[in-house]
Every structure is written in C-alpha cells, then in structure tokens.
Simulated scan of single mutants.
Amino acid sequence: MVKIANYTCGKDSPFLWIAGPCVMESRELILRVADELAAFAQRQKIQLVFKSSFDKANRTSGKSFRGPGLQEGLKLLEEVRQRTGLPVTTDVHETHQAEAAGQVVDIIQIPAFLARQTDLLLTAGKSGKAVNVKKGQFMAPWDMKNVVAKIRETGNPNLMLTERGSTFGYGNLVNDMRAIPWMQDLGCPVIFDATHSVQTPGSQGDRTGGDRRMVPYLAKAAVAAGCDGIFVETHPNPDQALSDGPNMIPLDEFPRLVEVCQRIRSALREPTEESHS
C-alpha cells in the first residue's frame, strides 16, 4: 500500500485517479481545470491527484511548446495544492528537478523514456515522496523489477508503477493487460495510463498523434484487469492544446469515464456474506 498525502493506493484501498492537462499552458487553464476536478472529486468522494507538467523535455520537435519551467511550474502546483486541497504530481527529467519537486509535490513521476535512469530514480526515491515510474515503451513488465529494486534501495516504500503501452512496430503502441498483474506481482500498485497509451508517436511529422476515442475502451479494460488507478490527461479543448491534444479527453467527458470505471471497479469486489444469503 502506497501513501499519497491523505490517500492510499493499493489492493485494499479506494481507486486512485491522476488527472489534469498534459502541460501547464497558463495559470488560468491550470486553475480552471484543477477547480473543476477538485469539485468533482469532492462530490463523488473519489481519490484524485492533480497532474500537469512544467516541462515537456521529450517533445518530438525542438520548436514545440514545453511549459513554464521548473520554478514557475512548482509555484503553480503549490497554488493548486493550497487552493483545492488536491495532492499534486508532475514529471521530472533531471536529478535537480527531482530534488526541487520533492519539496512541493506529493508524487514524483518518472517518464517512461527515463525509467532506467538510475540517478534519477535514486534521487526521486530519496525525496521521501511517493514515486510513480512509468514502464518504458521498450521494456517488458517483468523488467521493472530492477526499477523497483533501485527505489527500494533508498528505503522509500511508496512506489507505484504505470503501464502506458509498448512500442509495436513504427509509430504505434499496444497494451498487454497482463502487464497489470505481472507488475503487481513486484509488490507495487499499478496505475494505467489511458491517454498516453493511445499515442501514435511521430505520426504527425513534427508532432505525436493519437486517437482519444480509444481512451475509454482501454481504461475500462484496465480496470477490469485489476489496476489500482487510472492516469488520464484532460483539457477543456484538446484540439487547441499545446501538447498531446490528440490523446487527451475533453474535460466535460471526464465525469462519465470515472462513473463507468468506478462501476466496473465495484463489480470486481469480492461478494460479502450478505450477498449470498
């Protein structure tokens, strides 16, 4: 079981949602989305962590929008945390970013392309905050055992792993839902990244494409496979987003996705004695 602020994530814990815009486009956008997600989480009594990136360092083109940078981005995440009461998370790409982020966020996220970067993993682990490592698109689920070992060397027990698709030929990702129980066997809760899993890397020349229509299908399948949480990026107008627009779901569609997935999750629970009487 992983502790995240006042939440827990794991087999016997409430389902976890990680949601927000891909990148911090503006303060106005971030606060708008955070406010709406916080209000929804409070109404539905769900565990929700707000996510957005201060720097998208692995963009396809060097000319693509990357975000406001470390200092401004962390200030904005702190504002979201204070304003909404939601735990927050962001991804880091370098050790100095992990050290700084550890002072603000509740979960330090390691991007899939960096899942094997030892110094980054160790710095994140030593922060004492929960760490979420996305499985590399180039890695088998069982290879994540070495990632788990590196984090545990730091003495940090709060580690989650995320399934986000595997490279399939050129410009496509596929999901093997067996990755969820296989990685859970490593002793960690497993989150399913429903939006990055629908990417088609580099398919738009200088940008990554995707098919957001597939997000609900994959999310529902992952919940049925027993994942401990869902990661989903959302935006008021994905077609106008500055990063990962083709993969994000519209903000007004997020509640329906949560409703359906929570019903699937409830159906998976072991029947009580009363239900047999």
Rank of each mutant, 00 (worst) to 15 (best):
K3S: 13
I4K: 14
Y7H: 04
T8A: 11
C9A: 13
C9T: 00
S13Q: 11
P14I: 00
F15V: 02
A19T: 12
A19I: 08
V23C: 08
E25T: 11
L29W: 03
V33I: 12
E36R: 14
A38L: 14
A38T: 13
A38K: 14
R43M: 02
Q44G: 00
Q44Y: 04
L48P: 03
V49D: 04
V49Y: 02
S52Q: 03
G62M: 15
F65G: 04
G67P: 03
G73L: 08
K75P: 00
L76C: 10
L77A: 10
E78M: 02
E78H: 00
R81Q: 13
T84F: 05
L86Y: 15
V88C: 08
T89F: 03
D91C: 01
H93E: 02
H93A: 05
H93S: 01
H93N: 07
H96S: 05
E99R: 03
E99H: 06
A100V: 09
A100P: 09
V104N: 02
D106W: 01
I108C: 01
Q109G: 01
Q117L: 04
Q117E: 08
T118Q: 02
T118N: 05
L120M: 07
T123G: 01
A124D: 07
S127M: 02
G128Y: 11
K129G: 03
K129F: 09
N132P: 12
V133K: 04
K135I: 03
G136V: 07
D143V: 04
D143K: 09
M144S: 07
V147H: 07
R152I: 06
E153Y: 05
P157D: 06
L159D: 07
S166M: 13
T167N: 15
T167V: 13
G169I: 09
G169F: 06
N175A: 07
I180H: 01
W182P: 00
H196I: 02
T200P: 05
P201A: 11
S203F: 12
R207Y: 14
R207K: 15
G209S: 11
G210N: 04
G210T: 10
M214N: 00
A219E: 10
V223C: 05
A224Y: 08
A224R: 10
A225H: 13
C227A: 05
H235P: 06
H235W: 12
P236T: 01
P246M: 14
M248H: 10
M248S: 05
I249K: 00
I249S: 01
I249D: 00
P250D: 10
P250V: 05
E253P: 04
P255H: 03
V260F: 06
Q262R: 10
R263P: 00
A267K: 10
P271L: 07
T272S: 10
S277E: 01
